[in-house]
Amino acid sequence: MENVKWHPPPNPWLSPNQIKVTKPPKNRLPQTNTYLKYIGLSFQLFAIIGLGTWFGWFVQQKSQMRFPVWLLLFCFLSIVIAFYQLFISMKNDEKSEDDNKKV
């Protein structure tokens, strides 16, 4: 008897013409980088607000005032700085998107 290899039967539901190999779109990579950028930006905002609040608490403890004026001042100041950084980042992203659309 001959040495015969067994091959599974072809799938009757798919003909060779129906099988298509698709490549992922090329524009997926910048979108992923954008997500990573904004995740990093959220950590930066958290760090700025956290450090500003901690510094306000530290100054407040050293001044020994009853009303937490330094804590409030540095907390709100750090929030303003964090949102300014967010605004600048969004403005730069919008500018780069407009440049990419022109090309």
Rank of each mutant, 00 (worst) to 15 (best):
residue 43 F to T: 13
residue 23 K to C: 08
residue 70 W to Q: 03
residue 76 F to C: 10
residue 47 A to P: 00
residue 6 W to G: 03
residue 64 Q to C: 07
residue 80 V to N: 12
residue 60 Q to T: 00
residue 99 D to M: 14
residue 73 L to Y: 06
residue 7 H to P: 07
residue 41 L to W: 07
residue 28 R to W: 04
residue 64 Q to F: 04
residue 80 V to G: 09
residue 60 Q to D: 05
residue 67 F to P: 01
residue 34 T to V: 10
residue 57 W to I: 01
residue 103 V to L: 12
residue 50 G to P: 01
residue 4 V to Q: 09
residue 51 L to K: 03
residue 45 L to S: 09
residue 95 K to L: 13
residue 100 N to R: 15
residue 24 P to C: 07
residue 80 V to H: 11
residue 57 W to F: 01
residue 62 K to F: 06
residue 60 Q to I: 00
residue 50 G to S: 10
residue 33 N to V: 01
residue 20 K to E: 09
residue 49 I to C: 06
residue 91 K to I: 02
residue 99 D to P: 09
residue 66 R to Q: 05
residue 37 K to P: 01
residue 2 E to R: 03
residue 76 F to Y: 14
residue 3 N to D: 02
residue 87 F to H: 02
residue 88 I to H: 03
residue 55 F to Y: 04
residue 13 W to F: 14
residue 77 L to H: 10
residue 5 K to I: 11
residue 46 F to S: 13
residue 62 K to Q: 11
residue 72 L to W: 10
residue 70 W to L: 07
residue 15 S to F: 08
residue 41 L to G: 04
residue 98 D to F: 12
residue 60 Q to F: 01
residue 58 F to V: 10
residue 25 P to D: 11
residue 94 E to G: 12
residue 56 G to C: 02
residue 89 S to Q: 05
residue 32 T to E: 03
residue 54 W to Q: 02
residue 12 P to I: 13
residue 9 P to C: 14
residue 76 F to W: 09
residue 41 L to T: 05
residue 85 Q to Y: 09
residue 81 I to Y: 07
residue 32 T to Q: 06
residue 18 Q to C: 10
residue 64 Q to T: 08
residue 103 V to A: 11
residue 91 K to N: 05
residue 86 L to C: 04
residue 47 A to T: 15
residue 15 S to N: 14
residue 4 V to E: 08
residue 25 P to I: 05
residue 44 Q to E: 13
residue 102 K to Q: 14
residue 17 N to P: 02
residue 95 K to M: 11
residue 87 F to P: 00
residue 34 T to S: 10
residue 35 Y to S: 08
residue 64 Q to A: 12
residue 65 M to A: 06
residue 15 S to P: 04
residue 4 V to D: 02
residue 38 Y to R: 09
residue 16 P to Y: 13
residue 73 L to E: 05
residue 40 G to M: 11
residue 57 W to A: 01
residue 54 W to K: 01
residue 23 K to M: 13
residue 42 S to F: 11
residue 27 N to E: 13
residue 1 M to K: 12
residue 2 E to C: 02
residue 80 V to F: 14
residue 68 P to M: 00
residue 45 L to Y: 07
residue 38 Y to L: 09
residue 59 V to C: 03
residue 85 Q to T: 11
residue 71 L to Q: 00
residue 95 K to T: 14
residue 72 L to D: 09
residue 25 P to Q: 10
